[in-house]
């Protein structure tokens, strides 16, 4: 028996919004530590890694490890039926070929359940080693989303250059060029609003705007985002989900022809 109950059901709604444009299907791997999902987009350029820890749920039971392959479009349709304040419960029997989502309104006056067929997915799983990155940038997630949106008007690619002083986002295209510089915050009053840079070596990398814009669909999950970069390895864009886990996106940098 698998059962995961979340009073803050809107988290699951937001998680689906954060992955459904990038992935069409994915496997939710559940064990007694929680729920994990790892999947690449169709072009194998980016990867989503989601972790929701068992202790972040209001009730969590997983008697046997279970892998549930789901069509994410269908999951998104079902979660759209949940109210923002609803409690969401996912449950499945051992070896079941369906999963059930139960939504309860805050006053318990409305209870809905949606049963969905599971899929057998044979998806590739990548091993991502623990990596020390040359630069990590923490910044407000809304600011990052705004920068990605603004710069994608200028070109398909965005250059992110990180130094000790700050981080510069640039794009160049037919209409001209754009540069946005963010300085490291001098004094941190509210950590959520700060730009904090940890740097061992300066790094400059180029990324496809389209993917960065997909990643920013996770903005509502966290007030802050962390970008981790090293020369010649994929960028990691991480949104921490309060008290329960994180969603990380990996994106291979573009390289010179």
């Amino acid at each position: 028996m698998f059962e995961a109950r979340l009073l803050r059901g809107s988290i699951l709604k937001k998680v689906l919004e954060a992955i459904k444009d990038l992935l069409t299907q994915a496997t939710f791997d559940c064990d007694d530590s929680g729920i994990q999902l790892q999947a690449m987009d169709n072009s194998h350029v980016s990867l989503v890694s989601l972790q929701l820890r068992a202790d972040g749920f209001d009730k969590y039971r997983c008697d046997r490890n279970i892998s549930m392959g789901m069509n994410l479009n269908s999951v998104a349709k079902i979660l759209k039926c949940a109210g923002d304040k609803d409690t969401v419960t996912m449950k499945a029997q051992d070896n079941a070929d369906t999963v059930t989502f139960v939504f309860e309104s805050p006053n318990q006056e409305k209870v809905s359940d949606y049963e969905m067929k599971l899929m057998n997915l044979d998806l590739e799983h990548l091993g991502i080693p623990e990596t020390e990155y040359s630069c990590t940038i923490r910044m407000p997630s809304a600011e990052f989303a705004r920068i990605c949106r603004d710069l994608s008007q200028f070109g398909d690619s965005m250059v992110i250059a990180c130094t000790k002083e700050g981080v510069k986002f640039s794009a160049t295209g037919e209409i001209g060029s754009a540069n946005i510089k963010l300085a490291q915050t001098a004094s941190v009053d509210k950590e959520e609003e700060a730009v904090i840079i940890e740097m061992d070596e300066p790094v400059t990398l180029t990324f496809a705007c389209q993917y960065l814009n997909y990643f920013t669909k996770a903005t509502s999950l966290s007030p802050q985002v962390q970008l981790s970069m090293s020369a010649d390895v994929p960028l990691v864009v991480e949104y921490r989900i309060q008290d329960i886990g994180h969603i990380r996106y990996y994106l291979a940098p573009k390289i010179e022809d």
Partner: peptide
Amino acid sequence: CCIQPILHQYYI
């Protein structure tokens, strides 16, 4: 101007 590598070039 630029090539977009896939993730397999970094991770297996």
